[in-house]
Nucleic acid binder design. Sequence first.
DNA 1: TGGACATGTGACCAGATGGTCACCTATTCT
DNA 2: AGAATAGGTGACCATCTGGTCACATGTCCA
Lengths: 112, 112
Amino acid sequence: MAASETDEMGAVFRALADPTRRRLLDALFAEDGRSAGQLCAEVPEMTRFGVMKHVGVLEQAGLVTSRREGRTKLHYLNPVPIGLVADRWISKYAAPFTRAMVGLRTGLESGA
Amino acid sequence: MAASETDEMGAVFRALADPTRRRLLDALFAEDGRSAGQLCAEVPEMTRFGVMKHVGVLEQAGLVTSRREGRTKLHYLNPVPIGLVADRWISKYAAPFTRAMVGLRTGLESGA
DNA sequence: TGGACATGTGACCAGATGGTCACCTATTCT
DNA sequence: AGAATAGGTGACCATCTGGTCACATGTCCA
C-alpha cells in the first residue's frame, strides 16, 4: 500500500506544491501550446528566469511536455501524471469517506 | 491567482509535498486514532521532534485532527481536504483526459 | 552578415524548511 | 509527594528552494 509511492509521484507532489506552478498549469490548461515568453507574461511579478525555472520543474515532473519550433519552445499540458496520482493515491483517501462526510465535518472536530 | 485557489488548498498541497508526511497519512489510514508516540515509532529514522513537526503541518492543513485523552494525544485522519482538492482541482485536469489514458497505461504496466 | 529576438546556463543570494536538542509542563502510578 | 511517562516549546543549525543576474547560444529577418 505504501508501496504505491514512486519517484514520479513524489516529483508530481513536489511540483504541485508551489502556487506559481499551479498557476502555470492553469494557464496551460486554459490554452495549450504556449511559448516560454507567453508563459512568462502569465506571471508578470516574476522575472523570466524564475518562471522558466518553474516550467523546468513541471517538465521534470512530467506534467508539461515541450517541443521546439524554430527559435521558440512550445509547452503542452500532460494531465496523465496528475491522473495517476489521483487514481492511485488520492482516491484511496477520498473515495471511501469523503462523499458522506463532507457534511459531518464540524461534528468530528469537536474534540479539538 | 486562479479562482479555485484557496489557502486551505495551498496548505494541503504543501503538506502533501513531503514523503514523510504522506507516510504518516498512510499509517493513519491503515489504523486511525494513534498516539503521538505510536506515530513517531512509524518513522524510526527521525527523532520524535521531527515527526511531531510533520504531524503539526498535517494538522494545520486540516488533514489530521487530534483529541487529547488524558496525557496522550490521539490523531485521526481527515480525508475531507484531500477530497476537496481532488474534486476542485485535480478532477479538472484528470477527468476530461485521463480516465482513458490511465486505463491504457496501467494496463500496459501490468501487462508488460 | 549583422543585429534583434527567443531561450538556455551557471553562479549566486536570501528566505523557508527539515531536523535536532535542551528544557518545560502535565498526567499517571505507587 | 515523588518518580516515571507522554507530550510541547523555542532556539538553533544545515540544507533546500525560490528568485535574480550576467552572460552564452541559437534563430530569424533585413
